[in-house]
Amino acid sequence: MTVENHPLIVKSIAWQDETATQAFAQTLASRPSIGNAMIELSGDLGAGKTTFVRHLLKALGVQGRIKSPTYAVVEPYAVDVPGLGSTLNIWHFDFYRFNDPREWEEAGFRDIFASPGLKLVEWPEKAGKHLPKPDLLLAIEVQGNESRTVTLTAHTAAGKELLA
C-alpha cells in the first residue's frame, strides 16, 4: 500500500515506563514536520494517550497545566517555537464523549483540521470518516503496570519523516 507515493511505514516500539514515553515525545517534538502534522492516538482507557500528549506539548514549549480535553473536546495551544520563526498552533482533541460521528461535523472542526498547525486526536474512531487521514497513528497497548507497546503507522510523507 502506498500513500502520496510513499510506502506505508509500520514500526513497533516499547515504552518501558513514563520516562521512555517522555523521551519518545521529545524526539518527536524535534522533527521539522511536527508543526503541521495530524497525529491520531488509539488505545484503551488508561493506555497513556493523554500522558504522551502532555509530554509532547511540554517538549514543544507549552507552559503550565495541560488539561485533558475529555469534556471540552478540544484544548487549543499556541507556542513560539525557536527556529520556526512563528507561532505554532496546536489543538488537542478528545472525541471519547462523541455518541455519533456527525458530532464532529456539527462542532465545526473542519476549519481547524484544514488550517496549519499540529492536531493531536484521541479516540479518532468516534469521529468516523469525518477526519482527514492522519500523518501518524500511535496505537498504544498496555503490557504491564507501566510498560506499553506502541505501533506507529506513518500514512504520509510527513508521518514517515516523523518516524525517521
Rank of each mutant, 00 (worst) to 15 (best):
M1N: 11
L8Y: 01
K11I: 07
S12N: 07
I13D: 08
A14N: 10
E18G: 12
T19K: 14
A20M: 03
T21L: 02
A29W: 10
A29F: 09
A29Q: 06
R31H: 12
I39T: 12
I39E: 11
E40R: 08
L45P: 09
L45T: 11
L45A: 15
G46W: 05
A47M: 15
G48Y: 08
F52Y: 10
L60T: 05
L60D: 03
G61S: 04
R65F: 01
R65M: 03
R65N: 01
K67G: 00
K67A: 07
K67Q: 04
S68L: 05
S68R: 01
P69R: 00
P69G: 06
T70A: 04
Y71T: 01
A78P: 02
V79D: 01
V81W: 10
V81N: 02
N89L: 11
W91C: 14
F93N: 13
F95D: 05
N99P: 05
D100L: 10
R102F: 12
E103I: 03
G108Q: 10
R110W: 09
R110N: 14
F113S: 09
A114M: 15
A114Y: 11
V121L: 01
P124Q: 03
E125C: 05
E125L: 13
K129W: 07
P134H: 09
L138T: 00
L138D: 02
L138G: 03
I140N: 02
E141C: 11
N145D: 12
E146F: 06
S147P: 08
T153S: 13
A154Q: 00
H155Y: 15
H155R: 09
H155G: 06
T156Y: 00
A157K: 13
E161C: 03
L162R: 00
A164T: 13
